[in-house]
């Protein structure tokens, strides 16, 4: 079982925070196939959030195929995504390191890089035109 937490000022919608936490827990091997998620009632009471928000998050995870709801029983992890193979992680890390070196040469500091990365990764609903 996992316990959800909320970052109220993150700007990430609440339902999405729940979705991301489940995905992350599966990715890290904290949740396995067959494990049960907290019931909607439990999440509502623990976080004092709207039940519709929890339902929305669970529905989204269900559509992804990551969990399956069993009527009257609860919501369970349906498929454990295979973790990213360690060799791939190594290759990705070294190419990222090369990118960081180039960015430093170009005069970007850590904060600039993080902002650029986050911006590219999760384009805001508003994009800018040059």
């Amino acid at each position: 079982m996992i316990e959800f937490h909320l970052e109220t000022r993150s700007g990430v919608p609440t339902y999405l925070q729940l979705v991301q936490q489940v995905r992350q827990a599966v990715r890290l091997g904290i949740l396995h196939r067959g494990d049960q998620l907290p019931t909607v009632k439990e999440v509502v009471e623990q976080l004092t959030i709207n039940p519709n928000t929890v339902l929305r998050a669970y529905r989204e995870l269900d559509l992804e195929g990551l969990v399956e709801g069993r009527r009257g029983v609860g919501t369970f992890i349906a498929s454990a995504q295979p973790p990213v193979p360690p060799n791939d992680v190594k290759t990705l890390r070294s190419s990222l390191q090369r990118w960081i070196d180039r960015a430093r040469t170009a005069g970007l500091d850590d904060e600039n890089m993080a902002a650029l990365f986050a911006d590219t990764l999760r384009p805001p609903t508003i994009s800018r035109v040059a």
Partner: peptide
């Protein structure tokens, strides 16, 4: 919220305090 979970009732609540509303 517990009552909402159990019964699906509709709620309208007025407030001049915005804290908590975003999650509730």
């Amino acid at each position: 919220l517990r009552a909402v979970t159990e019964t699906g009732m509709t709620v309208v609540l007025s407030s001049h305090i915005v804290a908590d509303l975003e999650r509730v």
